[in-house]
Amino acid sequence: MTHIEKYFVPEPSRYPIFGSIALLLMATGAVFWMNKVSSGPLILALGFATLVYMLFGWFGQVIRESEGGNYGSNVDVSFRWSMGWFIFSEVMFFAGFFGALFYVRVIALPDLSSLDHQQFLWGNFSAQWPIKVSPGHIVDPFTPIGAWGIPAINTLLLLTSGATLTWAHWGLLNNNRGQLKLGLFLTIALGLLFLSLQIMEYAHAYSDLNLRLSSGIFGSTFFMLTGFHGLHVTIGATMLIVILLRVMKGHFKPDHHFAFEAVAWYWHFVDVVWLFLFVVVYWL
């Protein structure tokens, strides 16, 4: 064999244990907070700070190793496989919540309004989506959010951001750094605009439409699905900002930029989840 492809095995690292301590503190803090122990928020914040320290340190080391030329083509393939499988795990996470939505709409609600239930349990409850009155009358009336206002604009924003990101990628491939920076900047701006509109929409829902997380099963599925999506957009936008900062520092070459591609994959994944959300949560 003339050419030997070398593997990369990192030195011992202290970052993982910081991550573990961070999650222990965050879990403890969250449990305390939910159960009204006064130290909860403080412990949670401490844990989050530890997590941020760990993420900075760990990713910083990975970036230094990458820019130092330690990652050969073997490592590159490993990164590709792992990012793909990570996104698949995220798909399955959303699948759980989409599954809950479909189950409720197709099975649970018709069952609750069936003759047996009407007669013995939930008097006169009739299944319709979005539910106006919950079976146990525990939900105040609310108005759902229509699809063709802010949600439709948000769909356009996210789809456009996918296009600008691809345009930025072309810039990177053609060594056109200006196009790369502008494309990334536009993508981040569109993502942040999306998030701002989402926050506005939530405020509108809470203050004007009386649509809350506690608005029965509609509020549960609506806010959990769009909320977790919003969280993923936030994570994706944060990663894009890191990529933009790295681009400004001169990182990435046309043939060596998997970090960029991984974030782009993630961004497109978030985009696709939104399309499903738009259709089944807002529209249908």
Partner: peptide, 18 residues
């Protein structure tokens, strides 16, 4: 348990079987 959703609460339109 803590944030008032009704995934598994039939009174809110959910279902424990879910």
């Amino acid at each position: 348990r803590h944030f008032g959703t009704s995934f598994f609460n039939a009174a809110g339109g959910g279902d424990p079987v879910l």
